[in-house]
Design a protein around this nucleic acid. Structure first.
Lengths: 157, 157
DNA sequence: CGTCTAGCTGAACCATGTTCGGCATTCTAC
DNA sequence: GTAGAATGCCGAACATGGTTCAGCTAGACG
């Protein structure tokens, strides 16, 4: 399988713990998984090098920084356009948080956040004007039950 | 506005930097925003207390840990069921990363990741059997252009 | 058997997080 | 105005945790 990295049970436990709380000290993680701090340190650096750990980030509350509106925008493209054509332009809109190519009667799926419904309206207008875009269908989020849950590493059979 | 926190330009810069790289030292952030390490430290702690910074996390590559398939699952509920009713059950499925209540001809929107298409099929079957669920429509992600982009804090008018 | 490698440990060292006293500025209330 | 309080900043001191290292052990391989 492409990109797949072989992780043992301890690596999986480390990845899980760091997803929940990346500020844990190596000593603390070591205590939880049964290793010394130095050994945990070595494994974490290896996970970074292998591309399992892509970045260290903070999770911010969107509402607290003024982003009250979340929406998913399904985009249908014209037949001669591809997701790779339009994605760079969508990347220029800072409101767009995610951009996927999708299967089904949708070609591109975006996740966007704006301060107000009016800002979402303006964003949609700009998206519709991107060359290659045929039609958009938006789904506005009313409330979020949960988000950003840790991914559970798959254990090899 | 509910949950809204007043942030000045320096707070917004700090939040932005930490979203990109939460391992930056306070001294380094201070150099970028024009403050001492101690002052940055104080602001960050305040941002945590106010709920702007919700958690420190790592971003993992889903494919590297064996999660090859990403899908959005639109759920239609029966008339007597609400998102709050079914969300706890969806929360029991570790494959489900997000759960939102939505407006439009969809009631609940889920984001899920599985190792294989067969695992997605099994997950869908379990979701369909959750009491209150009427119908599901899945959109499988073919490729991801970008994801997890930093949120830009809104500046007050 | 001997050698090589991978992975672990504890100890030492160094960078960074954290706390603190003091100073400057602003705000409030008289 | 002005006294007093509050806020936010600084540099310095201290404590914690990240990082490096030498050495040990176990397993793989000839």
């Amino acid at each position: 399988m492409p990109n797949m990295v072989q992780l043992d049970a301890i690596d999986r436990a480390i990845v899980l713990e760091l997803q929940k709380e990346s500020r844990l000290s190596y000593a603390e993680i070591g205590a939880r998984v049964g290793l010394s701090a130095a050994a945990v340190h070595e494994r974490v650096k290896k996970l970074e090098r292998k591309g399992v750990i892509e970045a260290y980030r903070i999770q911010v509350n969107p509402k607290a920084i003024g982003l009250q509106v979340t929406a998913y925008i399904a985009v249908r493209l014209q037949n001669d356009a591809t997701c790779a054509d339009v994605a760079p332009t969508f990347g220029d809109f800072p409101e767009v948080e995610e951009c996927h190519s999708a299967a089904g009667d949708i070609d591109v799926l975006l996740k966007a956040r704006t301060a107000t419904p009016e800002d979402l309206e303006r964003l949609l207008y700009r998206i519709k004007r991107v060359p290659g875009v045929s039609r958009t269908t938006s789904t506005v989020v009313l409330s979020t039950q949960f988000e950003n849950r840790p991914l559970i590493p798959v254990e090899p059979e």
